[in-house]
Design a protein around this nucleic acid. Structure first.
Length: 496
RNA sequence: GACCCCAUCGUCUAGUCAGGUCCAGGACGUCAGGUUUUCAUCCUGAAAACAGGGGUUCGAAUCCCCUUGGGGUCGCCA
């Protein structure tokens, strides 16, 4: 049997290091067994998927050296590799399941579903909605159908207690309770499939032999197993990898940490070092060496060497490793090339120049004016904020509100950033200048700089957020209690 | 809360599947020294862990059970 694995990211935002992590193991597993590694774009969430994000994900994986054998850009025998282009397929299988009585149409409204869940929660334990919970009598179904109400297709699931047995390559036998499994939506009312249907259909049609994915999927494995049975297909081998963690051990999230691959690129990490570091998360070389290339990892790869404790993403160790790569594995001329590629290239200069031209009298003014753009962490001190003549609480509030607002920001352009910040300043009844002052220091290290929204646009979301977080820290941070108070106030502003 | 996963130094881990060679080894970080005109690099050293309790066994970090702790899932997101 040919080993075929895939990475199936959803193009809804910045490429995530977790995606790169899972991709790395899929890449290694496929290559180590002489198989293929595919890229499939799961863009079935029409509200959130963007072509920019898709492009960024491909750039990020390629940057790390995780090239795929088949994918939307390189093609392949079992394409298309973008789920939005395969919708007819999912509809067909969903209809087939309905005809065979293995799925059913559901006209329940969002409000009804919510009420049902509340009722179930109140009554007992599991909130999984079963086919019988969702049932409407024929007359009501007819009425809703005629009224043109939207409907979804849901899968039939066992209603009685009992266990579903899943075999995991690393964890062995896992028994999951059928009572926890709900009548999963397979086809959304917009005609697009959910992950569960699309993933089963595509994995089968694309000949995927092994599914290496995050631990977060364990609980939905019974649905997938059932779907394979319904469709009469063999299920691929499952392997659930541990989740990358924040220092507080929770699942790695952008709310607490920079999670974007490009943040690390911007911070000046080498792709060799980042992929090396990811390879050390939950995995080790037989001789325990810390520094290894992708090729070396591949040569020694054995999925059984994955350890299951969720590894904390430790930037300090990544930095040390990156230093090793820069010192030991790059000649001076290679390093020079890296620096040029990284920041000191013509495109980048052209991007930055419009913002600083007017402020320059000599060429030498350029470096100090723009140093903050290529810096990693700014050397901030508390006293820099003293000159603002604002109460510390006011400064912290401005920064915290800005951070919260920016965590929700999707459209990262100067104009929309400006609009959001202006809106916040107005809501707080602060002059824009006063509101922005602390942000200038957080982002550029000084109030004497070019437009802070332009700077944020150039720095990107992760870096901007990281700097604001850092400034809040330098100012002594926001206590849990204070955060609660601020959050209450923030909500009254209605800025989201 | 229910269900599932997990559990070795602060962090990443080796050792666990095939129990003894482990009063637990390496790495990051920390601390103390040394090399270097400073800093960094580099070198040497130190502190630092088998979550707890029961079993099984001549013998348990390793196998079993319970407890505790952490995490995940419970969406017309993936």
């Amino acid at each position: 049997m040919t080993v075929r694995t895939r990475i199936a990211p959803s193009p809804t935002g910045d490429p995530h290091v977790g995606t790169a992590y899972i991709a790395l193991f899929n890449w290694c597993f496929a290559r180590a067994h002489g198989g293929q590694f595919l890229l499939r774009i799961e863009d079935t969430d029409r509200a959130r998927s963007t072509p920019e994000s898709e492009g960024a994900i491909m750039d990020a994986l390629r940057w790390l050296g995780l090239q795929w054998d088949e994918g939307p850009d390189v093609g392949g025998a079992v394409g298309p590799y973008r789920q939005s282009e395969r919708s007819a397929l999912y509809v067909r299988f969903a209809e087939q399941l309905v005809e065979e009585g293995k799925a059913f149409r559901c006209y329940r409204t969002a409000q009804e579903l919510e009420a049902l869940r509340v009722a179930r929660r109140k009554a007992g334990n599991s909130v999984a909605l079963k086919p019988s919970d969702l049932h409407l009598d024929d007359a009501e179904v007819q009425r809703r159908k005629v009224a043109g109400q939207p409907c979804v297709i849901r899968m039939q699931v066992p209603e009685d207690a009992g266990y579903c047995v899943i075999e995991d390559m690393l964890r062995g036998t896992i028994k999951l309770d059928w009572t926890m499994v709900d009548a999963q939506i397979l086809l959304k009312s917009d005609g697009m499939p959910t992950y569960h249907l699309a993933n089963v259909v595509d994995d089968h049609l694309m000949g995927i032999s092994h599914v290496l994915r995050g631990e977060e999927w364990i609980n939905s494995a019974p649905k997938h197993k059932l779907l394979y049975e319904y469709l009469g297909w063999d299920m691929p081998q499952l392997c659930h990898l541990p989740l990358l963690r924040n220092p507080d051990k929770s699942k790695l999230s952008k709310r607490k940490n920079p999670t974007g691959v490009f943040y690390y690129q911007r911070m000046g990490y080498l792709p060799e070092a980042l992929v090396n570091y990811l390879g050390r998360m939950g995995w080790s070389m037989p001789d325990e060496r810390e520094k290894f290339s992708l090729a070396e990892m591949l040569a020694e790869f054995d999925i059984q060497r994955v350890s299951l404790g969720g590894p904390v993403f430790d930037v300090e160790k990544l930095s040390w490793l990156n230093g090793l790569w820069m010192r030991d594995s790059l000649e001076a001329d290679e390093l020079a090339d890296r620096l040029v590629d990284w920041a000191y290239n013509r495109d980048n200069l052209m991007r930055v120049l419009p913002h600083v031209r007017q402020r320059m009298q000599t060429l030498s003014d350029f470096a100090p004016l723009t140093a903050f753009l290529v810096a990693g962490e700014l050397p901030l001190t508390e006293s820099q904020f003293d000159d603002l003549n604002q109460e510390r609480d006011v400064i912290l509030r401005s920064l915290q509100f800005t951070l919260w607002r920016l965590e929700a920001q999707v459209d990262w352009t100067r104009d929309s950033l400006f609009a959001e910040l202006k809106h916040l300043a107005d809501a707080l009844d602060l002059k824009l200048k006063a509101f922005l002052a602390p942000l200038f220091i957080a982002i550029a290290g000084s109030t004497a700089s070019f437009s802070v929204v332009d700077a944020m646009a150039l720095l990107g979301p992760d870096m901007s957020r990281a700097r604001i977080r850092r400034a809040i820290e330098v100012l002594g941070g926001v206590s849990k209690k204070a955060a609660k108070r601020l959050e209450r106030k923030y909500r009254t502003l209605h800025v989201d």
